[in-house]
Design a protein around this nucleic acid. Structure first.
Length: 421
RNA sequence: GGAGGGAUGGCGGAGCGGCCAAUCGCACCAGACUGUAAAUCUGGCGCCCGGAAGGGCUUCGUAGGUUCGAAUCCUACUCCCUCCA
């Protein structure tokens, strides 16, 4: 398959941590047959964030060169829990949860990867009929020492911390997947190295050409320090709303702008380099960051959504105005009382609504405002000066009109409108 | 089979009879500052009453008990972990 020099560089160098074996992989790209690209996931926590998309984008690039993705739903390995990284005991998932998580995952997965060039497998297709003889045959050739070669096993072993036998099984199951789908290349983060190499080994034992291992770098999270992860809260989710993604992207430390462009956008490398030197020359990073944020939103949503998210950001954060689409609290004049809002007087055509008190208002409308249902919490907000009405700090009692906007903290708004219908 | 350690707020982790609604870190919320929802600083962070001072109620695996008083002591139970074999 003919591949341009530029594509080749993009595929093999941009956003790549390590390829084993690099030369082999290079040769495979020149073959006529589409490559079988393997990518597995455990349906244990279904949300995909930007950190995952670094690898997914690679898959996409290769799909566009004509190759095919084998997506493996790890419904068996999910039972075990990947010991890579943190070794917390995971709750065993029910069949329904697994199904559900897998669906969520795939919906997000296919925001980046081309569904038409993807084949989906479930581990249960083969492990469902595995018997003890198969297990013995699978585990037989491996030794404990081999397993202890892996860093996290080794560490726990040395520290006398428990290692479950099923955990040792994990890499083997993953390796077996490679045999079943006859994977040519398996993708994963650098933390997957051991598991990926296991696949190579097992394939060779079973008379297959060993897969290449393609490792992508771990993405640094929005805090600029630790790797992006949901549990650390420094992530941008694929499924986050456009404004959410945009806002989170803008909160990135400036020195992450360039790496993010490299790993998460299709902008030509030359253009990225230009930005880099422009910033070194004193250009305001804000503009580039906005561009980055737009790129990100557009990847997962659309250009229009990206533009809207930017407008939203500029309006609410930079200018501190209420968003157009603030939740609305409708009140009926005839009610007299709607929730905690009471119509108290009408002067010169403009009705004035007066709440019982600011605290009561927040308490009664906690749902619309996204607050917790607690008077104490509402009181705290009031005493902290977090409440304002139409741009003016609110006192102990609110004075509201048709069209008033109540703002709580930086990001919560509630618009009051009379229901004239 | 034997010996030992442990279960505390969303998480991690102090406390080991009154000064504990419970140190501290993370997360979270608010304020200030900022190009930024970052960083930093300040404050807050069980529920309820009160303008406030303050008061009340429910929490430290579960169930009982000792005590004027228990997250802290005792008993039983449940679960987790480590070491020896």
């Amino acid at each position: 398959m003919a591949i341009s020099q530029e594509d080749l560089r993009t595929v093999m160098d941009r956003g790549v941590a390590e390829i084993i074996d690099r030369n082999e992989f290079r040769k495979l790209l020149d073959r006529d047959k589409p490559l079988r690209l393997k990518m597995g996931f455990d349906p244990s926590s279904p949300d995909i964030h930007l950190g995952h998309t670094v690898g997914l984008r690679k898959l996409r690039q290769l799909q566009e060169l004509g190759h095919k993705v084998m997506l493996i739903v790890g419904d068996w390995t999910a039972q075990i829990g990947d010991p890579s990284g943190v070794s917390a005991t995971r709750p065993v998932l029910t069949h329904e949860q697994v199904q559900e998580n897998a669906q969520t995952y795939m919906t997000q997965f296919f925001k980046v990867v081309d569904r038409d060039r993807t084949e989906v497998f479930w581990q249960s297709e083969w492990f469902g009929k595995f018997d003890l003889a198969d297990v013995v045959r699978l585990t037989g050739p491996f030794t404990v020492a081999q397993m202890l070669a892996r860093e996290d096993f080794r560490r726990r072993w040395d520290a006398n911390r428990p290692i479950a036998i099923t955990e040792l099984l994990y890499p083997l199951l993953q390796a077996y997947d490679s045999v079943v789908v006859e994977s040519d290349v398996e993708f994963g983060g650098t933390d997957q190295k051991f598991n990926l190499l296991m696949g190579r080994e097992l394939q060779e034992m079973r008379g297959q050409r060993p897969q290449q291992c393609f490792m992508v770098p771990i993405l640094v999270g929005t805090d600029g320090v630790q790797k992006m992860s949901k549990s650390l809260g420094n992530y941008i989710g694929v499924d986050d709303a456009p404004e959410e993604q945009y806002g989170k992207a803008l909160s990135l430390p400036d020195d992450l702008i360039i790496p993010y462009f490299n790993l998460l956008s299709d902008l030509p490398t030359a253009e990225i380099d230009d930005m880099s030197s422009a910033m070194e020359g004193g250009a305001n990073p804000m503009e580039f960051k906005k561009r980055l944020a737009r790129e990100i939103v557009a990847t997962f949503w659309s250009e229009e959504d990206a533009a809207a998210a930017q407008a939203h950001f500029e309006q609410t954060v930079q200018r501190g105005e209420a968003p157009d689409e603030a939740p609305t609290l409708w009140f009926a004049r005839s009610d007299g009382v709607s929730g905690a809002v009471a119509v108290s007087s009408e002067q010169g055509g403009a009705k004035t609504l007066v709440s019982l008190s600011t605290v009561e208002f927040l308490y009664h409308h906690h749902a619309e405002l996204g607050l917790s249902q607690s008077r104490t919490a509402a009181k705290r907000l009031v005493s902290q000066g977090a409440v304002e009405v139409d741009g003016q700090p609110a006192g102990d009692t609110l004075s509201l009109r048709d069209g008033s906007v109540v703002r709580v903290g930086k990001r919560r708004y509630l618009r009051l409108l009379e229901d004239r219908s």
